[in-house]
Simulated assay, not measured.
Amino acid sequence: MATRGMNIPAIETALGEKWEDTRARLEAAGGASASHRELADALYPQFEGQVDNHGWWVQGAVVAYEQEIGRRVPGQRADGTFDVAVSRTISGQRSDLIAKFASFVDGTLNGAALEGEPRTSETAKRSFWRADLDGGIKVEVAAEAKSDDKTLVVLTTSKLPSPDALEEWRAFGKDFLSRLAGPSARD
């Protein structure tokens, strides 16, 4: 199974220091014996006011460290479940694409039955379709206009039980977005 880890060079660039220095900060904060939250809470103030979007980068650094020490694998959340997101830019309007996505759902997604009714919503920037599935799995489709006739569609599946399920849902998501794009769309 192929896995994807955190981008250490991007973390180094954003934090303005070598990974070895960030790792040393995390180890000084308790290292492998500290929880994710404890590590993030220790690192957070060290970059506050020095790094744009420092909270996001601190979280990324803690996840990369946890992957490095074997506490979690790529795609794994702190609670032990896995998330995967796939995206594609598709011709069409965001609301229309959400409606088209919903029309393809026949009570199941990737063999998992919907629990309850799917929910749709819109903000000024994005349109959403969300559903809960058997086994606690959650699916969200977000659509955001990129131009007058192009929309970025992101399908995120959360609370997956294993790395194998993550890869299965990644493949399913890519196929589903290809179907949403239509037969004339090029990959």
Rank of each mutant, 00 (worst) to 15 (best):
T108C: 11
L109V: 14
N110I: 00
N110F: 02
G111C: 04
G111M: 01
L114S: 05
L114E: 09
G116C: 02
E117T: 14
P118S: 14
E122F: 12
T123D: 13
T123I: 15
T123P: 14
T123A: 13
A124Q: 10
K125F: 07
R126F: 01
R126G: 01
S127T: 13
W129T: 06
W129A: 02
R130P: 08
L133K: 03
L133E: 06
D134I: 05
G135T: 10
G135A: 10
G136R: 09
I137M: 05
I137A: 00
K138N: 01
V139C: 10
V141R: 01
A142P: 03
A143F: 06
A143I: 08
A145T: 11
A145G: 05
S147H: 10
S147W: 11
S147G: 07
D148P: 03
D148W: 12
D148I: 09
D149A: 14
K150G: 08
T151L: 02
T151N: 02
L152K: 10
V153S: 04
V153T: 06
V154H: 02
L155P: 01
L155H: 04
T156K: 15
T157H: 03
T157F: 10
L160W: 07
L160D: 05
P161H: 06
S162A: 00
S162M: 00
D164M: 07
D164L: 07
A165Y: 02
L166A: 06
E167S: 13
E167Y: 11
W169H: 12
R170W: 09
R170Y: 12
A171K: 08
G173A: 08
K174V: 15
D175F: 09
F176L: 15
L177C: 08
L177D: 11
R179W: 14
A181E: 07
A181G: 09
